[in-house]
Simulated assay, not measured.
Amino acid sequence: MAKSRSVIFSLLLALPILWSASSAHADQAFQRLMPLLVDLDGWQGKKPDGMSMEMPNGSMTTATREYQRGPARAHASVMVGTAAMGALAPIHAGMNVTTSEGHMLTASMHGMQVLKSYTTAQKSGALIVALDKDAMFSLSYNGMTEDEALALAEKFDWKAIQAATKK
């Protein structure tokens, strides 16, 4: 009886250690992405944030960071998992739409497929970079031209982000 109590007591003591070890493992998925959302010269960046979620039919990991410079705003994010697959569908389909109000165009930048969207009146848009079939980097923005936003997006190391999403 004393031996079984000792085993139960040891197990109860080990539970918090096992719990923290499994939590640390789950946290690693987004924690390795957050440092890749770098400081941008001339911009005030908020603290990066992230999350990992496991579901029966898939998983999702995100890391995000918001930036501000005067009235201009930018939101950088990395997404891995089933949600990224859905967001990448227009790139894989080769979608191109141009109107008098803006555009949504697929292209290639630095050897990667991208989707560029821009709304002229609001000076807002997004750049989505396909890192893999289920991984993407995106920069959404407002208060700046598309060229300014593309130059800002290029300050992130897409290849390093791509490598981090595969770990």
Rank of each mutant, 00 (worst) to 15 (best):
T98F: 02
K133L: 08
L105H: 13
Q122A: 15
E54R: 09
W43A: 00
A135H: 02
N142E: 09
V78W: 07
S77L: 12
Y141T: 01
T82P: 02
A72C: 07
L40Q: 15
Q113D: 15
G70N: 00
V114L: 08
G125I: 07
A121N: 12
M85Y: 11
T120E: 13
K47F: 02
G45T: 01
I128R: 06
M95V: 13
D39E: 15
M60D: 06
K133I: 11
Y67K: 05
M85F: 11
S138H: 05
A93C: 03
M144Y: 01
E54S: 07
P56N: 04
A72L: 03
K133Q: 09
N96H: 10
D39Y: 02
I91C: 04
A130M: 13
G58Q: 09
L105P: 01
L88C: 11
M79D: 00
M60G: 07
V38D: 09
D132W: 04
T119A: 09
V38H: 04
H110D: 15
A83R: 10
G58W: 03
M34E: 15
T98C: 04
G58E: 08
P56A: 09
G102L: 07
A135W: 05
D49G: 14
V129R: 11
L37T: 11
A63T: 13
M79L: 15
G42M: 05
A83V: 12
E66R: 13
T98R: 15
F137T: 05
L131A: 03
N57S: 12
Q44I: 00
A63W: 09
E66W: 04
S138R: 14
V114G: 04
P71K: 11
E54T: 12
M53I: 14
S138L: 13
M136F: 01
D41A: 14
A76L: 06
D49N: 14
L37H: 06
A83G: 09
M34N: 11
W43F: 04
K133F: 06
L105Y: 05
Q122L: 10
V38Y: 01
V80M: 06
A87C: 01
L139M: 09
Y141H: 11
E54G: 07
L115Y: 07
K116V: 15
S138C: 10
M53Y: 03
M51K: 13
A130F: 00
P48Q: 13
D41R: 12
A87D: 06
S59C: 01
L127E: 02
T61R: 05
A72M: 07
M79S: 09
A63H: 06
N57A: 12
